[in-house]
Write a protein that binds this DNA or RNA. Structure first.
Length: 509
RNA sequence: GGUCCGUUCGUCUAGGGGUUAGGACACCAGAUUUUCAUUCUGGUAACACGGGUUCGAUUCCCGUACGGACUACCA
């Protein structure tokens, strides 16, 4: 196998879509597995769609999920520059070579003329209204114009494009690593524009030229490129690079959760989950789209989830670190069908990864939340809380959000629980219990429990009967983590105060 | 419309000519938790359809249906 060199080649037209992250991931896994090179190339040949900040965003996103770039944009390397807009002259040279060899030609048709052609063909009942081996003979291009006409147009500076001269009748085949042989007849491919009138190449030319020059060994990209892949094969051939042609792998698409179709930002917004790795402030619309990071997803969990969308190791193992993914990854095991995006599964992965964190790490998450709320809390206490909450959380912020009552006394009480559980027995026990713990000089979960048992035994009321009422009086809620530990964390003084407030506020129906 | 690609539980998928079609998420039930969550145990649930080939097809072939992608001087 030749040296593995793969590239991730996004367009800086906005934030990096989650599907793009998966594409980058698969490229990265292959590169790392073979001790190869991961290259980042910016495909910004469409000047109109360039969005400032997008390049920066892409790099930051890849960094966050743990995809390291070995060579390319922002890093440098032997094939710089890695921004296509800075490689104009290179493409021009190869476009010229294609023209010289008779594999491409100049075309002067205006937008209106192209439109007219399509209309005409449509009216004539032709299925394929494209610029091809037949229609090119009726258009204004260097194949139909005389040498003088051509010269006149050129001298006058008439805008033109360079089009590929696709052969009339030929079977073009391509061996895709995921789909095996794909065959397309050349009559189905149109004479694609290679160089635009603004002097920029189109994706097709730039892509093939760069992949060749950068010695790319595998092109792993989205399925949307499959229909034009034969065109790329043709370009490799015309340029004389067929032997250096990379291997192709066209990835199945990420589909929206309900119904079918490509996963879009709109779907994600509607269903309330992120579509971008990092929060993105769209400079054109001014809109802010929350990212996975800011929503509390851990990068490792996201990666694990994404890796399994369209790929699996063939075993029952589900949890994979990046290192394990690198080991296990196999392009051949990538599925063919599109995968629906299921945010619930992503959350499950997040939960798994969150739980694997140490108490100290979890307590750091809590500290971050507390800082925002201007609440001071000792490290020992926050570690205790982390231990208490660890099996109950999906996101880091849950420690705070589900444990607020540890810091804030209730001002209201769960009504349903109050009606059901707040009765004479409960009031009796809780009042006595309050007295009992007030008389204790020391206090912790163990003592809280013993005292409660003593109290209920004395009053001959089952502990279980009043426990929820006690919880209600202290937290205002009907459910939650271990109550004794909760009391220990809250502390005796505060527990007494809360019970007093509950006793004064809650009435027996 | 045309071209290309695809189709196994609701979802992600394993499997592959003869299997009780396996796992995970979700869902439901039971146990544990003096609550809720966790955890554990169990359960519901799938080979799109029609023809071939074959002793036998979910698996191979061909159609059909359905879905998707592409069909720009966008990538």
């Amino acid at each position: 196998m030749r040296e593995v060199r793969v590239r991730f080649a996004p367009s800086p037209t906005g934030a990096l879509h989650i599907g793009g992250v998966r594409t980058a991931l698969y490229n990265y896994l292959l590169a790392r597995q073979h001790k190869g090179t991961m290259i980042l190339r910016i495909e910004d040949t469409d000047q109109n769609r360039y969005v400032p900040g997008a390049e920066e965003y892409i790099m930051k996103s890849l960094e966050w999920v743990g995809i390291k770039i070995d060579e390319g944009f922002g890093v440098g390397g032997p094939h710089a520059p890695y921004r296509q807009s800075e490689r104009k002259d290179i493409y021009k040279k190869y476009a010229q070579q294609l023209i010289d060899d008779g594999n491409a030609y100049y075309a002067f048709d205006t937008e209106q003329e192209l439109e007219q052609m399509r209309e005409r063909l449509k009216a004539a009942g032709v299925d394929n209204q494209q610029y091809n081996s037949i229609t090119r003979l009726q258009m204004r291009n260097s194949l139909t114009l005389t040498t003088e006409e051509l010269k006149t147009l050129m001298d006058a500076g008439t805008p033109y494009v360079i089009r590929l001269k696709v052969p009339k009748k030929e079977e073009i085949r391509l061996n895709d690593m995921i789909r095996s042989w794909v065959m397309v007849h050349s009559s189905q491919i149109d004479d694609k524009v290679l160089m635009k009138s603004d002097g920029m190449p189109t994706y097709h030319l730039a892509n093939v030229v760069d992949d060749y020059l950068m010695k790319i060994s595998h092109v792993i990209r989205g399925e949307e490129w499959l229909p034009s892949a034969p065109l790329h094969v043709l370009l490799y051939r015309f340029l004389g690079w067929e032997n250096e042609m990379p291997q192709f792998a066209h990835l199945p698409l990420l589909l929206k959760p309900s119904g079918d179709g490509k996963l879009s930002k709109r779907d994600a917004d509607q269903l309330g989950f992120p579509i971008f790795p990092l929060t993105w402030n769209d400079p054109t619309t001014g809109e802010e789209a929350k990212g996975y990071k800011e929503s509390g997803y851990l990068p490792d969990a996201l990666i694990n989830f994404l890796a399994f969308l369209g790929w699996n190791p063939g075993t029952t193992q589900e949890l994979f670190s990046m290192e394990e993914l690198i080991d296990a990854f196999l392009v051949e095991r990538i599925g063919k069908a599109g995968a629906k995006f299921d945010i619930l599964k992503a959350q499950w992965f997040n939960q798994q990864y969150l739980r694997a964190k140490s108490d100290v790490e979890l307590s750091d998450y809590l500290s971050a939340s507390l800082e925002k709320e201007n609440i001071v809390c000792s490290k020992e206490k926050s570690i205790k809380i982390a231990q208490l909450m660890r099996d109950r959380i999906t996101f880091p912020k849950d420690i705070w959000e589900q444990g607020k009552f540890l810091f804030i006394s209730p001002t209201s009480f769960d009504e349903q629980v109050a009606t059901k559980k707040w009765n004479d027995d409960a009031v009796k026990v809780i009042s006595a219990y309050k007295e009992a713990i007030q008389n204790r000089t020391d206090f912790n979960a163990e003592i809280a429990k013993l005292t409660l048992e003593e109290t209920t035994a004395l009053l001959t009321i089952g502990t279980g009967k009043i426990l929820q009422a006690l919880r209600l009086s202290i937290t205002g809620l009907g459910g939650g983590p271990d109550l004794m530990m909760t009391m220990e964390i809250i502390g005796k003084e505060e527990v007494v105060k809360r019970i007093e407030f509950a006793l004064a506020t809650l009435k027996v129906e």
